[in-house]
Design a protein around this nucleic acid. Sequence first.
DNA 1: GTCTATATCATGATAGAC
DNA 2: GTCTATCATGATATAGAC
Lengths: 208, 208
Amino acid sequence: MEIKKDSTEEKILGAAKSVFVSKGMEGARMQEIADEAGINKALLHYYFRSKERLFEAIFAEIIKFAFPKVTRIVGSDEPIVAKIEQVIDAYIELLIEHPFIPGFIIKELNRDPSGLFKLVVKFGLNPQAIFDQMQIAMDRGEIIQMQPRHLAANIISMCIFPFAARPIISFILFKDDQKALEAFYAERAEVIKKFVIDAIVIKKKEIE
Amino acid sequence: MEIKKDSTEEKILGAAKSVFVSKGMEGARMQEIADEAGINKALLHYYFRSKERLFEAIFAEIIKFAFPKVTRIVGSDEPIVAKIEQVIDAYIELLIEHPFIPGFIIKELNRDPSGLFKLVVKFGLNPQAIFDQMQIAMDRGEIIQMQPRHLAANIISMCIFPFAARPIISFILFKDDQKALEAFYAERAEVIKKFVIDAIVIKKKEIE
DNA sequence: GTCTATATCATGATAGAC
DNA sequence: GTCTATCATGATATAGAC
């Protein structure tokens, strides 16, 4: 049931995604979406009854796109540290490709958190599995003891926040030098992996 | 030149802050601000010519409030690790008191980054001093070598992101249990301090 | 300074021809 | 399915009385 490429519906979805992501639900204008899709405003209402419904379609698509990479990694049987490294790599890669997603999600969820309910339930998002794996590694003495939730929060924060706060990072740290900013983002994965490992991995000589 | 308390202007500023922070510039309605201030819509335009100007007044106030705590700490002559701990404590304390500031700032800066220009220049925000101090501590072998910008990004990310992403944290990690969520935030300062120290402080036995 | 009433305009949504 | 034309609403902003 894939939507035919270059169909009108496809064009609308592409244009709506672009406009909603950059302007947000409240800042977006149906006229602008229509212009970018190269069609008429009335057609938007023909395909999607209202702005609200069009937005929901886009929002679901982006959430689905941003969240599920993790589940595949969690399911593998590699050691926890390798999994953490893979999650960091996967997220930074995704965010370099789509740097405006974090700002968009934060903006819209602070505006109306209710949308998260249905989607999380629908996609079966559940972090308990990864928390359990962390706890096991802690009990084995492979990594230090800390609440898995805090460890997860630390890792995810370091990955996502610099993208969500892009304008601040860009201006304050790099005086809007985009080349330098991109270089900074490209380094993030290695930096975060090393930082996390230094913080949590228990070195053997400390055990002896 | 302090504004008299309970004056009309004071009431407007208080109401506008509350509404703008929770709804954002685009989501806020002048009617709602007037209602919350207990005055008439026309009065808003009498005191502040437009919604735009009223918003700028509030935005400047919040930026001024959110940023400058750091400068006082940076200026002291304590060792770098102590300073980092103080910055973390100061920020988490501020954010627990005002948890909606990060979401507000991220939303508005992604909408229109130009406002940052004037304000940062006006308040003389400059992180170079703290970066220099970090670099000195690295060269002395007190903390590991890494780019100061990345170290700063890591620390700030772990402090701010869980508040900016409050709805996600609340729902996914705590199933909207507000008591548990507050407990989590209360633990953040200690968790982050330990995490950062474990990651960057070079233990003496490793030097020998 | 504060209010009521109104002007002005932009936007989401619909009607109806083709 | 796609378009033009139009409606209905709600928002910012202003005029003018008190």
